[in-house]
Design a protein around this nucleic acid. Structure first.
Length: 317
DNA sequence: GTTCCCTACAAATGGACCAC
DNA sequence: GTGGTCCATTTGTAGGGAAC
């Protein structure tokens, strides 16, 4: 059985202030340290959810949930001299107990005055970005791959998605395995809620209630029915168990009385048996003595008959 | 506090255009 | 003719503000 996937590293190419940067996870975890405003939240808290579902909505990109900053502004600033810029974000997963890798990510092309162009990809053959797969061509300078170049580069070793929903479904299917895409979205929403900076500032039960209400799946009657039926079954089982316990205790009392009675009967029968055996021994002994006496009498009778015959013979003479 | 409306943006779709 | 690119339009979503 395959072990679980863990985030192994995250990469940014030509994105925001980064030309090419990788951040490694250790056993699926990463610690970022830096002063306020140094970009920790933007780098990780915004990029990680983005890579999990590909949703580039401005409120999703801002750790504070505002819509002040669009995805395009992470590639081209307002006063940027460049006319266009193509960047890549990727997230590499690794199985816990083997060197099996899966990388997902997205390419983003921003052009001045034009809508954002984006595409999504997955590397399924185990190739690793930065080791045996590269998202740029290196001539005199590093030039990031266009969508077409990426498709040609991936060939059969991966997949390129045009639609965000296809990318999200792929990650859910390959990495998380939620039964429905809605459940996967709810998990992402919960992640977004929990990533909120300074969450602990107003850490009140009402705030927690709001967060959970907004992020967790609502329960409908159909969801609750099996649970209520299970509770009813538990009540019935408890009642049955109680009555059976009472029956067991009553049977125990009867058993103890009968056991005492049976022991008494057994004692008397054993006593009778013992006396009978003694009497039998006495009778056997008396019988033996009688046989001995009988044999003695028979010998005496035989001897007297012999003497009588001798006397009868002498008398005739 | 709730509801409604407006605005902004992303996603999706389809048509026009162009190169091969 | 086919495939790729660009662009316009529609739809959906979420935030913000006004009215109640």
């Amino acid at each position: 059985m395959n072990s679980r996937w863990q985030a192994n590293k995250i990469g940014l190419i030509n994105f925001w202030y980064y030309d090419e940067q990788e951040f490694s996870f250790i056993k699926g975890r990463m610690l970022l340290r830096g002063s306020n405003g140094s970009g920790k939240s933007v780098t990780m808290q915004s990029v990680v959810p983005l890579l999990l579902d590909g949703n580039m909505s401005p409120e999703r990109l801002d750790p504070f949930g505002s819509r002040d900053r669009k995805m395009s502004s992470y590639l081209l600033e307002e006063d940027d001299e460049r006319e266009e810029r193509t960047g890549y974000l990727y997230l590499e997963f690794k199985r816990q107990e083997s060197d099996t890798y899966l990388t997902v990510g997205m390419g983003i092309r921003a052009r001045k005055g034009k809508p954002l162009d984006k595409w999504y990809f997955a590397i399924k053959d185990g190739s690793r970005i930065g080791k045996d797969f590269f998202l740029y061509k290196e001539t005199s300078e590093k030039v990031t791959l266009s969508k077409r170049q990426l498709e040609n580069q991936l060939k059969t070793g991966g997949e390129v998605f045009d639609r965000q929903v296809e990318y999200m479904e792929f990650i859910n299917r390959e990495i998380f395995g939620f039964e429905t895409i809605e459940e996967y979205k709810e998990m992402i929403d919960l992640l977004i809620q929990l990533r909120t900076p300074k969450l602990s500032k107003d850490f009140k039960p009402s705030v927690i209630n709001d967060i959970l209400s907004n992020s967790l799946q609502p329960l409908y009657d159909e969801d609750l029915r099996p649970m209520s039926e299970a509770i009813e079954n538990m009540d019935t089982m408890t009642s049955n168990l109680k009555s059976r316990e009472e029956g067991r205790q009553a049977a125990g009392k009867i058993y103890r009385v009968y056991d005492k009675y049976n022991r008494l009967l057994l004692f008397e029968k054993a006593k009778n048996l013992d006396e009978g055996e003694r009497e039998l021994l006495t009778i056997k002994r008396q019988k033996s003595e009688a046989y001995t006496l009988l044999e003695s009498c028979k010998e005496q009778v035989a001897r007297l008959e012999s003497e009588q015959m001798e006397l009868d013979t002498k008398k005739k003479l």
